[in-house]
Design a protein around this nucleic acid. Structure first.
Length: 510
RNA sequence: GGCCCGUUCGUCUAUCGGCUAGGACGCAAGAUUUUCAUUCUUGAAAGACGAGUUCGACUCUCGUACGGGCUACCA
């Protein structure tokens, strides 16, 4: 049976999406596009306690910035709407009841507090408490209580949950697209809560399986942290009688901290000096976190870097456009071990992308930066300035420092360069050079360079001496492109003005 | 603690029984250069450990160690 590929990214709106989540979304997206399938965005907000306002919008904006397109789901709609689980709450109770009737689940009346007590007791006795076949008949459940008692308790308004009746001592055989065959004995598993009466909401496990089934999801691609609950999910498909359309599973390796141990967490970024989120985030309590976008990364570079964290094409190619990723992505080249996130490599990728941009592509990046400085120039000029300096750029946020001298005359002069150049014959030499420049008709960089080089040779100057003194006047610092890129860009009048300014305002060192 | 997953240069990784173990980031040295960069060349740098299978093991099996995940009426 050939089934349409349908994958979903199903985040929980409990905060900003971190880069591990972005990578999961990316792999889902690449897989969907690779196979001509659909990408679904489902919001799993079944935990009313942990809901964070703004998180959903953040997730959607992040995916958009990354170029991960949603075919169906929150924000775009689709045949299985709604895609927000809180808006589907009517659906789940029926399925929970179906499981109870079939003997796959039961009511439990114990409270979280009572369970905490049991857990503590077990812990003190040196054992681990597990809610499973050993205890479920001893606790107040529909397995230990009479039917009348159960109905009475419910009628009385007592809180209850539905728990899955995990079979005893059965080996569940599972297949994972990345990890291969995995087996687990059900006796080591506990009776997970599927539905709770307090808020009339399902837990992740029920909602997830029901929605994946209803939305005809063909492949579940998610983080490795879900692997331990895979047997439960297998069993749920069996309990519902949906095994014939059960999706295939792929559990992705986790993203680990750059240093230290453990998986990458939301707090790592600010501690270690790099962003862990795609976009800047302000929490409802006012705390802020850096984002890749605001830190000056290009979405293409960010995505390229993430794509290679846990996947490789099997060739030596490293720079990939989204389309190239789509064309080469495959789950069987996803690695099994967790990948340590490496901020330096993210910078390298960004630099590669900046180096390869045309002036036309650079201009829209440059314009907002110039506008913020109150500088109005044409796109052509903005792009040209950026283009001259692009090989020195790592981040978008580097652009101003690298190009400012094209647009504003130096207001101060770097001490080191001044000491080295603004002495001896150089002031006199610069005055002569000013005269030479003033007489040049064709101020294109080729012509200016030819004229100046000839003049240097005739007068027996050293190239570095002339160029660096001119650089002091025009740039004010020991940085920047070749001097004739500068002279051409700023034009003759501005050149002369800047030279005059240096001569007039800075006394030569002896 | 229990269960599960994993383990090649510092980091990301290639290798699907024949390896002088390849690439990239980072690092070091050199070259180019009017500054700062870029770029180029070169270098250092790895198969966790122990058994077994095999003519042969980084690749297969087992054990140990280490790392990671899960163990909530969170996802």
């Amino acid at each position: 049976m050939k089934r349409e590929v349908r994958v979903r990214f199903a985040p929980s709106p409990t905060g900003p999406l971190h880069i591990g989540g972005v990578r999961t979304a990316l792999y889902n997206y690449l897989f969907a596009r690779r196979h001509g399938g659909k990408m679904i965005l489902r919001i799993e907000d079944t935990d009313s306690q942990r809901f964070v306002p703004g998180a959903e919008e953040y997730i959607i904006e992040s995916l958009k910035w990354c170029g991960i397109e949603i075919d169906e789901g929150v924000g775009v709609g689709g045949p299985h709407a709604p895609y927000r689980q809180s808006e589907r709450k009517d659906i789940y109770l029926k399925y929970a009841m179906q499981l109870i009737e079939a003997g796959w689940a039961y009511y439990a009346f114990d409270t979280p507090e009572e369970l905490d007590v049991l857990r503590k007791e077990a812990e003190e006795a040196g054992k681990t408490f597990a809610y499973n076949y050993e205890v479920r008949e001893k606790l107040p459940t529909s397995l230990s209580l009479t039917k009348e008692e159960v109905e009475a308790r419910i009628a009385r308004g007592e809180q209850w949950v539905v728990r899955f009746k995990m079979p005893e001592n059965e080996v569940v055989k599972m297949d994972d697209l990345i990890r291969g065959h995995v087996e687990m004995n059900t006796s080591t598993l506990d009776d997970k809560v599927l539905y709770k009466s307090v808020d009339a909401l399902p837990t992740y496990h029920l909602a997830n399986i029901v929605d994946d089934h209803l939305m005809e999801v063909s492949h579940v691609i998610r983080g490795e942290e879900w692997l331990p609950s895979l047997p439960l999910h297998y069993l749920l498909y069996r309990a519902f009688g949906w095994t014939d359309t059960q999706p295939e599973f792929a559990h992705l390796p986790l993203l680990l901290k750059p240093i230290g141990s453990g998986k990458l967490s939301k707090r790592d970024g600010d501690k270690m000096g790099f962003p862990v989120f795609p976009l800047f985030w302000t929490s409802p309590t006012g705390e802020t976190s850096r984002g890749y976008r605001e830190d000056g990364y290009l979405p293409e570079a960010f995505i390229n870097m993430l794509s290679l964290l846990g996947w490789n094409p099997g060739t030596e190619q490293e720079v990939f456009s989204m389309q190239e990723l789509i064309d080469t992505f495959s789950l069987d080249r996803v690695s099994k071990a967790g990948a340590r996130f490496q901020p330096d490599k993210a910078k390298w990728f960004n630099a590669q992308y900046m180096h390869n941009m045309s002036d036309e592509q650079l201009a829209p990046l440059m314009q907002p930066i110039l506008k913020a400085k109150g500088i109005e120039v044409s796109d052509a000029m903005a792009g040209k300035a950026a283009g001259i300096m692009k090989e020195r750029m790592t981040l978008v946020t580097d652009m101003w420092d690298l190009t400012s001298f094209f647009f504003v005359a130096p207001t101060e002069y770097e001490e080191k360069l001044t000491k080295k150049q603004w002495k001896g014959d150089n002031p006199a030499m610069l005055a002569k050079l000013r005269g030479l420049l003033e007489g040049i008709e064709d101020f294109s960089k080729e012509n200016t360079e030819a004229v100046v080089r000839a003049w240097i040779e005739q007068n027996g100057y050293a190239l570095g001496q002339v160029m660096n003194t001119l650089r002091l006047a025009l740039v004010g610092a020991g940085k920047g492109p070749g001097m004739f890129d500068v002279t051409e860009f700023i034009g003759k009048d501005e050149c002369l003005k800047r030279i005059d300014s240096l001569i007039a305002n800075v006394t030569p060192v002896e």
